[in-house]
Amino acid sequence: MTRHFRELSVAGALILVLAALAIFAPGFYQPQPLLSLATREAPTLVVACGMALVIICRQIDISVGSQFAVCSVSAGLLAAQNTPTALVGLAAIGIGALLGAINGTLIAGLRLPSIVVTLATMVTWREALRLQRQGAFVNLPDRLQWLGLSQSSGQWVLVAAAVALLAALGLAMRHVAAGRFVYAVGTDAEAARLAGMRPQLVTFLTFVFMGALTGLAAMMNVAQSPQVDPKSGTGLELKAIAAVVVGGVAISGGRGTLWGVFVGLLLLACVSPALTHLHVEAYWEKAIQGAIILLAVVADGVRTRKTDR
C-alpha cells in the first residue's frame, strides 16, 4: 500500500478529473473522440516509457523531440521512395537508436552531464532538419496511412501497440535482470559497480533504447497523418518528462514504475480536453504543464525532506 502510494495518489487525481468531466462535460465521453485522443497520445506514451527508463537511470534526455522529428522525416522520405512499410518502421527505429547512441556515447563515455549534451543535440538535430527541409512537409503515400488498414482499425492497432509495449516494458522492468540493473544504476552507480554491474554500459544502452523507442513513436505518428511536418515533436520532451515526473518517477533516479507513468500520462492527456470542455482556453496548456511538473517535484521534494528527518 505505502509502496504504491505515489501511483495511487495520481490515479486518485485522474479519477477526480474524470468524475469532474462526467458531471460538468459529459460530452467528453464519446467513443470516437476518445479513440482519437488515445491515438494522438499513443506515440507520447511510447516516448514517455523511454523517458521513464532514462530518468530511473538518473539521467535526462531533452533531445527526444528533435529525434522524433528526424525519425519522422526520414521515415517519410523512405516511404515516398516506395520502401516497404515494415522496412520504413525498422529504419525509423534504427535511426532513433543511432541518435540515442550518440547521446549515450557523450554521456556515458565522456561522462558529460546529460542535460547539456541533450540540449545541444536537441538544437543540432532540429536545425539540421530545418536546414535540410526548409520547412517543407513530406507527403506520404496512401498505403502508409493507418498501416494500410481502415482508419478505426488502424487507430485500434496503434493504441493497442502502445499499451502492449507499455505492459511488456513494465513487466520487463520488474522481471528481467536488465530492468533491475537500470534501477540499481539509478539508485547508486558506485554500489552497482561494486556489485559487478557496468553502470556506464547500462547508461549507454538506456539512451540507445530511448532513441529506438522514439523512432518507433515517430513511425506511429507518421502512420496517422498524410504528411510529415519537419517541426513535429516540438515540446514532446516536456510532455514526456511531465508524464514521468507526475507518474511518480523520482528525478533523483532509482524509483518509480511504468504503471505510474501510464497513469500520469492519462492524467495529463485528460487535462487539455478537460480544459476545452470546461471552457478554459487551450493556450494555457503549456503553462499548466510547467506548473504540473513543478508541483510534482515540489511534492516529491517535500516528501523526501520529511522522510529524511
Binding site: 542535460i115 518528462i241 503549456k286 503553462a287 506548473a291 511538473i293
Partner: peptide
C-alpha cells in the same frame, strides 16, 4: 535542472496564454 525545466515551460506557457 528540473526546477528551471519546469519554469521553462511555465514562463513560455504564461506568455502564450
Amino acid at each position: 535542472l528540473i526546477v528551471t525545466l519546469g519554469t521553462y515551460s511555465l514562463f513560455r506557457g504564461v506568455a502564450e496564454a
